[in-house]
Amino acid sequence: MAQYLMSVLDEKGGRATAEEMAAIDVFNEKLQADGNWVFAGGLASPGSATVVDGRDGEPVFTDGPYLESKEHIIGFWIVEAPHLDVALRLAAQGSKSCNRRVELRPFLSE
């Protein structure tokens, strides 16, 4: 089994609608029932981010996201799947449920 990160990409800048939330709940339940669920969460807007650099002496805090972009990540799933074909199917269902594009990326396995 491998784990994959499914990041939800948002360009509308809005939160999920009630309808989208309901679809996401259904998808989450399916992930749990089928044994693909690891973790999931929604993120607050990029404006709430703080960049922290603690590498040298006193940490430096910078307000705002690391990258300004038109599209940003507003949530994610971590799923477990035997291989990419299954993960792609899950990503397609996830994308449909939250009505947004998702980026599927494997975790390092070794």
Binding site: P82, H83, L84, D85, A87, R89, P106, S109
Partner: peptide, 12 residues
């Protein structure tokens, strides 16, 4: 890295 399977695709 992404585990593209060495196999016949899923039925669907």
């Amino acid at each position: 890295a992404a585990r593209i399977p060495f196999g016949v695709p899923l039925r669907e």
